[in-house]
């Protein structure tokens, strides 16, 4: 069975799928990614599907599952590089790719992850500020 390599670039894991995956290879990737997210403490996963001719319901479900697993492990997933013909086919097939963020290419995917992280930090800051305010208000 072939295995899809997972690369670590800074805080992000990059998966570029270059082979026509068998269902077993897709399931293996799902497990490998979950392990690597925890092992590296990465906060973002980019899945590049530029080389994929098709995304059928099995691979579509794998992408959704990876996004859900990453979320639970505190990482954002962005799927990048979907071909136009693949997008048209996916919609007609009836697959909505729920919960999956997409971007046109790897660069935009990285921007999206960076933006999502900084939003979170801002929210944290606001919470901290609110907590500080309460502390100072009480005598």
């Amino acid at each position: 069975m072939e295995r899809v390599p997972i690369l670590k670039i800074g805080d992000i894991l990059l998966v570029s799928i270059q082979v026509d995956m068998s269902d077993q290879t897709a399931l293996q990737l799902q497990e490998d990614l979950a392990e690597r997210i925890v092992a590296t403490g990465s906060h973002g996963v980019i899945i590049d599907i530029t080389a994929l001719d098709i995304v059928d319901s099995f691979v579509g479900r794998m992408l959704s599952t990876i996004a859900s697993i990453s979320k639970v492990l505190d990482a954002e997933t962005v799927v990048v590089g979907m071909r136009p013909a693949v997008a048209i086919t996916l919609v007609e097939l009836g697959l909505s790719l729920n919960g999956i963020r997409t971007a046109l290419n790897v660069e935009r995917g990285m921007e999206l992850i960076a933006a999502a992280r900084s939003d979170e930090f801002e929210e944290d800051d606001q919470l901290d500020d609110a907590a500080d305010a309460e502390t100072t208000a009480s005598p």
């Binding site: 098709i54 013909a85 693949v86 097939l93």
Partner: peptide, 17 residues
């Protein structure tokens, strides 16, 4: 066409599975 190839291959993948 490319879109029709993609649709047919996708359908074939579902049915083969």
């Amino acid at each position: 066409s490319l879109v029709d190839q993609t649709k047919l291959v996708t359908a074939a993948s579902e049915l083969a599975r």
